[in-house]
Amino acid sequence: MRDAQSRGESLIGATAHVTLEPCSHHGRTPPCCDALIAARVARVVVATTDPNPRVAGQGLERLRAAGIQVDLLPTDHPAAIRSRELNIGFFSRMIRGTPWVRMKIAASLDGITALPNGQSQWITGEAAREDGHLWRARACAVLTGAGTVLEDDPRLDARLPGLARQPHLAVIDSRLDTPPTARLFEPPYGGLPRRLWFFHAEAGSPQADKLRQRGADTILMPGANGKVDLGATMRELGRREVNELHVEAGAKLNASLLREGWVDELLVYLAPRLLGQGAGMAPFGPLERLADGTPLRWLDTQALGTDLRLRARIDGRDAFLTNR
């Protein structure tokens, strides 16, 4: 709207198509309803209502009260379905109170993510790694474990030209083993700010002060057996307004997240090679029956250089979208 007005285009009598119900409250920006009313548009086509209880239909009513025609698409309209997918993280946080969790894995064709000696760079090629950075950049936060930090010393930032923001970084670190010299404390690509959150299970750790001195938040989330409570962590990330959570972790944390039901979607990059022995993707189980395996639904496949990207969704995890 600002762009059209800056070009001298009048919006009086225009039709606006929006993917989400215009908000009716002050948040990070003023109410979108007010801007549409002030522009004197004649009609607003809305793909889906806003699940935020601060909006939840009030935006539509406000527009109608101003004399604007409002058309809400049926829930099964293709554009409504695509709009809910576009906002899947926001819908997840508003309805479930937790982020939409997407787990990224890079592996050989036989499912090996690292050799027995720990070497994992690089199993996949440059095109797959660049695509992985695009998915990092899409997320509100990246989640990893202390094991990955200690073994690989990654920065886990999105390294793409022209980025406007960096995803925050959350680390599951039960004993706060991360050293304050770790590379993740370095300024991320582009010098863009990000928050560092360490979820731990032991109170009174002297390491906490050292990490806080490096600008991190240390968040006590004790669970069973000295581990971090993953469910409480997900709810806390939701409270911190994380919509989409991008997981890049080792096999143990991957397995815990899957076993406890905190993964919604898998983003798997397969390289055309066999590695035989090494770390698997997520060694949960053992299961007694094949029927006890985690059911998936394929979303898409794409060739990236010599590698193959597979996207699959845990069956039923997106059911909260269907009644909108």
Score class of each variant (00 low, 15 high):
5 Q>V: 15
7 R>K: 14
7 R>C: 05
10 S>H: 09
12 I>C: 06
14 A>Q: 12
15 T>R: 13
17 H>S: 01
21 E>P: 01
21 E>F: 05
22 P>H: 01
26 H>T: 12
26 H>S: 06
27 G>N: 04
30 P>V: 02
31 P>A: 08
33 C>Q: 02
37 I>W: 10
38 A>W: 01
41 V>Y: 00
41 V>R: 10
41 V>I: 15
47 A>D: 09
49 T>E: 07
49 T>G: 13
54 R>E: 14
57 G>P: 08
58 Q>I: 03
62 R>C: 03
64 R>K: 13
65 A>F: 03
67 G>Q: 09
75 T>H: 07
82 R>V: 04
82 R>N: 11
85 E>Q: 12
86 L>F: 10
86 L>Q: 15
88 I>V: 15
90 F>K: 09
91 F>R: 07
91 F>H: 15
92 S>E: 06
93 R>T: 07
95 I>F: 00
97 G>N: 09
97 G>K: 15
100 W>K: 09
101 V>C: 14
106 A>M: 11
109 L>E: 00
109 L>H: 01
110 D>K: 08
113 T>K: 08
114 A>V: 05
114 A>L: 03
115 L>P: 03
117 N>A: 06
120 S>T: 04
122 W>S: 09
124 T>G: 04
127 A>Y: 03
128 A>S: 14
128 A>V: 01
128 A>H: 05
129 R>P: 00
130 E>R: 15
133 H>M: 14
136 R>Q: 06
136 R>T: 10
140 C>L: 02
141 A>H: 03
141 A>T: 07
143 L>Q: 06
145 G>W: 04
147 G>I: 00
148 T>L: 04
148 T>K: 01
150 L>E: 08
151 E>G: 05
154 P>W: 09
154 P>Q: 15
158 A>P: 13
158 A>W: 09
159 R>H: 11
160 L>T: 05
160 L>V: 06
161 P>Q: 13
162 G>E: 11
168 H>L: 00
169 L>E: 05
170 A>L: 08
172 I>C: 08
180 P>R: 10
180 P>Q: 10
181 T>D: 13
181 T>Y: 07
186 E>Y: 02
187 P>N: 10
188 P>R: 04
192 L>C: 02
195 R>V: 02
196 L>E: 07
198 F>R: 03
202 E>L: 12
205 S>I: 10
208 A>Q: 11
208 A>S: 14
208 A>P: 00
209 D>P: 00
210 K>D: 06
215 G>V: 08
216 A>P: 02
223 G>Q: 12
230 L>R: 09
230 L>E: 06
231 G>A: 15
232 A>I: 07
235 R>S: 14
240 R>E: 11
242 V>W: 04
242 V>K: 01
248 E>D: 13
259 R>E: 15
262 W>M: 14
263 V>N: 14
266 L>C: 04
267 L>E: 09
267 L>I: 09
276 G>I: 09
281 M>L: 14
281 M>Y: 03
281 M>K: 05
284 F>M: 12
285 G>W: 00
286 P>I: 08
290 L>M: 15
294 T>C: 11
295 P>E: 06
298 W>V: 02
299 L>P: 00
299 L>A: 06
302 Q>E: 14
307 D>R: 10
310 L>Y: 06
310 L>S: 06
311 R>G: 08
311 R>I: 12
311 R>S: 13
312 A>F: 04
313 R>A: 15
316 G>A: 03
319 A>W: 05
323 N>K: 10
324 R>Y: 02
